[in-house]
Design a protein around this nucleic acid. Structure first.
Lengths: 243, 243
DNA sequence: AATGTCAATATGTACGACTAATTAATTATT
DNA sequence: AATAATTAATTAGTCGTACATATTGACATT
């Protein structure tokens, strides 16, 4: 039995290396401007072939995290170059801890995008999409006692609105925003969703009646609630984050 | 002399391969869901090593364009997975031709982001940043006869506002929408910038006096002008693009 | 002090062999 | 005949070495 403990130390594959180094960069273990270890060092430290390291660094470069140059090595780029909305980078940043500053940035974005998207959806949504939105508000009601189902329905509600704008870019930003959204739902677990459901219904009704500005305002109200919820958990660090 | 015609056919490097395949994907030469040629085929067709192909495909995968799996090959992902705001992807799409649909999507985004960003900037901008914004409006005036300088000053004006929100994500989105911005400036070359400068001054004044909602409205007006300019060039295909 | 040359070095590329995983065809089973 | 298990074929994944290329920094030259 003891012979089975480590059949082979489970060599890292390319994706694991990307995550390993990527996390260390976005979390500041490697400072901006710093040259990170040379290929050969990674090769022996992680016990993988050089190709794996190279491909991993290529991926990081594609995401704007690093830049490679002969003789100088691989340098960490300023964070203004990072593709912050890239799902992986987002995951590395959110997964770790909730940097209040970054959370506020995402909330800013959400406050700009979602209300405006509701207005667009009210104008552009197809009839089937409107029906889907209406159906989802009902589903929210059914699921109000099942936390997990409620969260999923909530997320799908917002996602559907984004899709109803018929704007590829907005759909994508919507996916990025989902992490804040999920947080704002999760922090309210157990305190009842009555108010939340009401607000969702207002949004849905406005969209389905094609009242653009009403939909915008309703969503702004909804987000306002969420922001209060988040702020009550994170305290002043969120509303007024350290620079 | 004839021996010098082709010293070496200038082998493609990794970045060139990324651009080559990436362009073909975003422009639909490889359809969504399609399996693109196997590594070995690229190797002989492009006359490069297998590592180059692999690294290139890794980059494309990092940008969400493709997904690789053993035995199946490399498959083009649905465009909802593409990192549309990635500078390279943006360049491949914009550089080619102006897809009216995509242009409208970007304009939607701009209409949501920039006015709200002006409001934020009015609240959060530091004093030096306010001075910079003021200085840039003056620079716009000086440069009104030098088209190239005018465009650069215009872009820098908008960029500075984004930076004044102190929001990393907005700065990045700002960079992404710069391409539409550039277009909207370029289409008006030669017809005088008087009106445009006026509008910029309104925006700048509102921000510098920390009047958030006034700044929001001024920027919305400015964008409204730009949209009209673009629509007048592209015609109905822009305002009401084919799905 | 400015410029040009050269050697050191880390990334860039190539090639060949092998591994691993997944699909599809084949065979065995019910 | 339909279904499940087995096997074979294929393609991405990895490794290792050798060589090419480009950038840097030191040194020498003007």
């Amino acid at each position: 039995m003891s012979t089975e403990t480590s059949p082979t130390p489970a060599r890292l594959n390319h994706a694991a290396v990307v995550a390993l180094i990527g996390r260390d960069i976005v979390n500041g273990k490697y400072a901006v401007g710093e040259i990170l270890p040379f290929e050969e060092e990674f090769v022996e430290k992680l016990d993988v072939g050089r190709g794996v390291i190279r491909e991993a660094i290529r991926v990081l470069a594609a995401k704007g995290l690093v830049e490679t140059r002969p003789k100088r090595g691989t340098q960490v780029l300023p964070s203004s170059m990072w593709q912050l909305l890239d799902p992986e980078i987002l995951f590395w940043r959110i997964g770790q801890d909730f940097d209040p500053k970054f959370l506020r940035d995402l909330t800013d974005l959400r406050s700009m995008i979602e209300p405006a998207a509701c207005a667009l959806a009210a104008e552009r949504a197809s009839d089937p999409e409107l029906q889907l939105i209406a159906a989802l508000t009902r589903e929210l009601n059914y699921a109000k006692d099942d936390e997990l189902a409620f969260i999923e329905a909530d997320l799908k509600f917002h996602r559907t609105i984004m899709q109803s704008t018929h704007n590829e870019i907005l759909v994508q930003i919507g996916v990025a925003i989902e992490s804040v959204l999920r947080l704002s739902v999760e922090v309210t677990v157990g305190i009842g969703h009555g108010r939340r459901i009401e607000e969702h219904e207002k949004v849905a009704n406005a969209i389905c009646n094609r009242q653009a500005s009403k939909a915008r305002n309703a969503m702004a109200d909804l987000i306002g609630l969420n922001v209060l919820d988040i702020a009550s958990i994170l305290g002043p660090a969120f509303s007024n984050p350290k620079k």
